[in-house]
């Protein structure tokens, strides 16, 4: 597994908010085509790390290398999106007033080229693009099995489906790297199984690398190729599920021992 090429490297990143150290000298490699899970107790800095990766936070120290290129420090989130990194949020961040279809179409924003005038007249390039992008979005809709809610405003959907639509929006962007912040939080067992299947299929069918934060250890151990463990902003373990499960530091900080 070590022979695969690195898609993203996070090198010595430190992030603090005033006196609070969110991340301390964290280094992580994400290899192309893998599913990497980030776990750790609440407040360990997992979401902060994702926010650093997609440009919401700028770390005080360290750098990120994506697809072999060091990233400039002053990158805004929309630049990062352009490089091919998409994400979902812990608390669903959909465009509530829009339909499922429009949410996914908005995910295609980076693939649209037509100008204002063409869109105003709904003619020529804008019209061709709308249809072409719609075709791709329909592929994502079929993949996620959300055909029935295509035209429903997402604010009216139940939570589990909203999570799925949000995944669809990220997927519609055709990213290289997909960041998933607790994709299974608040779901029942069936919904979790569905979501696991989608994540595995995204990697296999769409060839997208996934980094996910998740608290359900059963899920994490099952689907991830590698696991990184954070605690108080520091990386305390990094390895295969079996290695991490056996690591005494991880057991101490997060997993705990079974009381038989």
């Amino acid at each position: 597994m070590g022979s695969r090429e690195s898609l993203l490297s996070v090198e010595g990143v430190s992030l603090s908010f005033g006196a609070v150290q969110a991340l301390v000298d964290v280094s992580i490699e994400v290899y192309g085509g893998e599913i990497l899970a980030i776990i750790g107790p609440n407040g360990a800095g997992k979401t902060s790390l994702l926010n650093v990766i997609n440009g919401v936070y700028r770390p005080q120290q360290g750098r990120l290398v994506f697809m072999g290129q060091a990233r400039p420090r002053n990158l805004r989130p929309y630049h990062v999106a352009r490089q091919g990194i998409a994400r979902t949020f812990q608390n669903v961040a959909l465009f509530k007033g829009m339909s499922t279809l429009d949410n996914l179409m908005t995910g295609r924003v980076l693939h649209m080229r037509s100008g204002l005038l063409s869109q105003a007249l709904y003619w020529g390039r804008a019209l061709r693009e709308e249809e072409a992008q719609r075709a791709y979005v329909e592929r994502v809709i079929n993949f996620l099995e959300i055909e029935a809610i295509r035209k429903t405003p997402v604010g009216r959907l139940p939570y589990g489906l909203q999570k799925r639509v949000e995944l669809g929006r990220a997927l519609a962007a055709e990213p290289r790297l997909l960041l998933l912040d607790e994709p299974m939080a608040g779901m029942n067992v069936e919904e979790k199984e569905d979501m696991c299947r989608f994540i595995l299929d995204i990697r296999d069918e769409f060839d997208i690398t996934c980094v996910l934060i998740e608290h359900d250890m059963g899920v994490v151990m099952d689907i991830s190729d590698r696991i990184v463990v954070l605690d108080y902003g520091r990386k305390i373990a990094d390895g295969s599920p079996d290695e991490v499960r056996a690591n005494p530091d991880v057991i101490d900080a997060y997993l705990g021992v079974a009381h038989a």
Binding site: N54, V80, K96, G97, T106, L110, A173
Partner: peptide, 10 residues
């Protein structure tokens, strides 16, 4: 609807 999410999708 959600300016943070809008920025993150580009």
């Amino acid at each position: 609807d959600m300016d943070v999410a809008a920025e993150i999708i580009g």
